[in-house]
């Protein structure tokens, strides 16, 4: 569903991502682990065609993101680290706006239904977003993915700054999305969350993919050891 082929990015000669090969199938949660500056966000930005890769390409549903940026964006939902919505609109209005941008004109009941699926309290739906917590805003983001039935979910540090309960809520939502058949790419530096939620884990350092592990095959402490080893090299 989501594939990167030798994806490379250099900024003024500085290598940010080099020769990245990823292949994420539908119904999979792929966690990209790495320190700050490892190239996780750069990878996501290339998938969103914020800037083109220096070489290589990425495919979403078989379509190149550089050649068909708008087509590929139709099939994905992106939730940034700090999902910002329009503060003076309500959660429902924000959802309706972003759905509309991908050509989905939804009624109030449908909107409320999607928000409910994403776990937003009904009394919060029609309050302005400026009163929302980070977790609530992310639920709106997930509702957007549900509404658009996106094939691909791109998540950038979604759980940083969430309290454990909210973090757990979010993990369940990801499970839900996975079961619906989405291919999920989650950039994070939360080892615990990667192990618990992910199906596969990729470890990135200085723009390179160092290792790929299957989450169920490895214990927490082993994962930590592997991660730290890769960071040192």
């Amino acid at each position: 569903m989501l594939e990167t082929i030798n994806l490379t990015k250099q900024f003024n000669g500085q290598v940010a991502v080099s020769g990245l090969h990823l292949n994420i199938e539908a119904g999979e949660i792929y966690c990209l682990l790495g320190a700050n500056g490892a190239g996780k966000t750069t990878t996501i930005n290339m998938l969103l065609n914020v800037f083109p890769p220096s070489s290589g390409d990425a495919l979403i549903g078989g379509l190149s993101v550089t050649e068909n940026p708008l087509e590929t964006k139709k099939r994905l939902t992106y939730i940034p680290e700090n999902l910002a919505l329009y503060p003076n609109l309500t959660g429902a209005e924000n959802l309706r706006f972003f759905c509309g941008l991908s050509g989905l004109q939804l009624g109030v009941t449908e909107i409320e239904g999607h928000l409910k699926k994403a776990g937003l309290q009904p009394e919060a739906m029609h309050k302005r977003v400026e009163t929302y917590s980070k977790g609530m805003r992310q639920k709106v983001g997930v509702a957007l993915a549900i509404a658009r039935s996106s094939d691909v979910l791109l998540l950038d540090e979604p759980t940083s700054g969430l309290d454990p309960a909210a973090s757990n809520d979010f993990a369940r939502l990801l499970e839900l999305m996975k079961d619906r058949g989405a291919a999920i790419l989650m950039a994070t530096h939360d080892l615990f969350r990667a192990k618990e939620t992910g199906t596969r884990i990729g470890i990135m350092n200085r723009g390179k993919l160092m290792d790929e592990l299957v989450a169920s095959d490895i214990s927490h402490s082993d994962l930590e050891q592997v991660y730290l080893n890769h960071m040192k090299s």
Binding site: L70, K74, L76, Y78, P80, A84, Y86, P87, L101
Partner: peptide, 18 residues
Amino acid sequence: EGGTLALLQSQPVSIQKI
């Protein structure tokens, strides 16, 4: 500043148009 630009950029509509 609000950060909504990031979200807009991930939408299937060109950002210039929006």
